[in-house]
Nucleic acid binder design. Sequence first.
RNA 1: GCCGGAGUGGCGGAAUUGGUAGACGCAGGGGAUUCAAAAUCCCCCGAUUUUUUAAUCAUGGGGGUUCAAGUCCCCCCUCCGGUACCA
Length: 819
Amino acid sequence: MPKANKVYSHKDVEKEAQEFWEKNQVFSVTEDPNKEKFYCLSMFPYPSGSAHMGHVRNYTLGDAISRFQRLLGKNVLQPMGWDAFGLPAENAAIKNKVQPANWTNQNIEKMRSQLRKMGFAYDWKREFATCDPKYYKWEQWFFIEMLNKGLAYQDEAEVNWDPVEETVLANEQVEDGKGWRSGAKIERRKLKQWFLKITDYAEEMLEETDKLDGWPEQVKAMQKNWIGKSEGMKFIFNSKKEGIPISVFTTRPDTIMGVTFLAISGDHPIALNLEKENEEIKSFLKDINSIKLSEADLAKQEKLGIDTGLQATHPFSKEDIPIWIANFVLSAYGSGALMGVPAHDERDFEFAKKYSLQIKQVIKGSSENKIEDAAVIEKNLLINSGEFDGLNFDEAFKQIDKKAKKLKCGQRQVNYRLRDWGVSRQRYWGAPIPVVKNLKGDVEGAKEIPVLLPTEVEFSGVKSPLSEMEEFTKVSYGDKDFIRETDTFDTFFESSWYYARFASFDSNNAMLDERAKYWLPVDQYVGGIEHAVLHLLYSRFFYRCLRDLNLVEGSEPFLNLLCQGMVLKDGLKMSKSKDNVVDPDEMIEEFGADALRLFVMFAAPPDQSFEWSDQGLRGASRYLNRLWNLVQEHIKSGLRIDLNFSDSSEQVRALRNKTHQTLSKVKDDFLRRHSFNTAIASVMELTNAIPKDFLSTKATDAEKSSVKEAINTILISLSPISPHITHALWRQLGNEEAIIDVNWPEADKNLLKEKSVEIAIQINGKLRGRVTVESNLPQKELETLAREQENIKKYIENKKIKKVIYIDKKLLNLVVSEK
RNA sequence: GCCGGAGUGGCGGAAUUGGUAGACGCAGGGGAUUCAAAAUCCCCCGAUUUUUUAAUCAUGGGGGUUCAAGUCCCCCCUCCGGUACCA
């Protein structure tokens, strides 16, 4: 007979459970063709110092899903690693005079111990950090493969240049156009950088986005919008003086006859030519070209332009069209030039108003408004367009395309917003780009990998330490001398394939091996919504490249995606600067990992942001204590080993109803809805539903059995969320098998139905009464019962019942009117 | 600006397919236990009117569809995420 433990000590319970899992290597998995696999992955953390509540939430979600899948009998892989390259290590290095490598490794030690205390079911043997040469060697190999296939190329790209520190700054290191440390005015510079041809996969990824059934709709929408496919036409306008053709893309070819100006970007060849001879333009370009702006800043800034004085010829009308330089024209999108149609585009309208440019209406408006007051955006029939008058959008598109082709001044074109991925970073703490160039400047892939990143460096934040190190930059193959590339990879490079490496974590001979084909794709990916576009899109791109190298099967890396919301305190994101950080360690110390896990899962649905509350955590802890005491009382009442319901009462039947309803709801909430908060609420309801006298030694066998059935359900349901206490209590109940190894008990369908139900009675849709009836009572009899109710009578007296609406087992609505 | 979310009691949230708004928990009030407190247990708990019964109002704001709207449609406000070198 197991002994009852009077007091719940979370420290003892959690230590013992963790030792049990460790000793039995419960979470260490290998490929097993006889079992259904389930690969559950939470986004690995950047080792910034210590784990925060965002991590606790993310990893508890992943762990709960993993453990639930295990209950369903699957071969579950849940790994963990470290996204170890990145900017904060460099910042810390400058501030604290430590090596980025050492700082990173110390953080990893700290965070690993924190995650271990949380009791997450990780297969720790697979752990790796991306700053380990054994890892980045393979992405260097992968890059060279891409280079050989023509998927990597060099081009000029802009950076933020800090002239004082002589370094490139990240966008977040630029504050109001100034360097965050030096305070120097940041300059825009162009550097030759490496790009990956993600645009080659744009169409494929776009098409397959819709097939991602396990992804949230909003993330799919964001991905599609980011790729931004638009169908339209390219037109070529010839500039009169320069003779340089200006190519523009438009999604509204039907407005071609309404073009009253052309706008080119500040770095368009025509603009750069004019800069040399025109002081006014030179000074304008200096203003708009001096700093690199984010898309958001660009969109918010005042629209400015300058007339170049040049004209272009309209390809159809042969009229002269003025050419302007404008600060809102993106050089990176389309061709760096656009056709201005003020009558039918809001931005062009605003620009034309400001600079008093002509507004020419060519699309029929639907309102009375004058074209001088507002642009007509909607599609409609063409006017003032000569031979195209009276055509609708589709017809006009066809005819205009036909004519443009004939005149060789344009054609149909598909354009994507998505740009190729620039992977070069002028930073020290990243994976070296494995490229060398000879003395003539020709570029080729490094012959030996890994190209090791030196870990003992002079690091002050001024200049790139790598380019100062001759032992790094100078390399010779045979008798030929080369210079090494000193840029490193964007850290998204590492995170775009780490999920695959977990399968082949110890492979020394290849990037990935056959094991990757067993484990991939990831069945459930869990992480922050902030990664909805970039990280996930880059990962989808890399997965396709891996597929094309025959390293993985299928096209999508993540079958199901769960994006969790943020953890807030006092309505704000937790951060050191706001001094509202809650340290998980302190919470574990005081309340235990189980209570913390229970609270973060209970406080809000996973995809919403949730508000931290010390009181709420206390409440979770109080519930676990109550559960502990409940089990102790049940044990004292005398355990029934075999369930025996032969002399069941109404009360027993009611508890069993609740138990089986809970089983059914918890499974649905875990699997389909990912609604852990309501799963926990229903388990609490079941706990509350156990009658006090069923815990007495005098209770009948059936009563004790029903309590046992309820407690088993509570413990199994809760075991993915609070695994330690449920492990301990399961043991105390005398079970041989550990709770981690049990199979999920399916609900008994016959016990889901209740004998009686409460029906709402409405008059004209307003609630006027309730009746409790046998659940199989026919509608007619229910109606009779309802009409007899005092409160209902007064609403139907002298009235005509027009309509009766009955929703099975829920509601009866009588629609009445005056006679 | 653009793309994507969110807004429900004092608070976190529930209401799954248009069908009883407020499950579950926190805070609060009352009681039991205690010399006392903590802990624990029991009861109450959206607002207004009402002795009870009941009625009216109420899901960011304004309109609409419907027998019935937190849920669907249109317009607006506020906050949050992303916006290509933070991860």
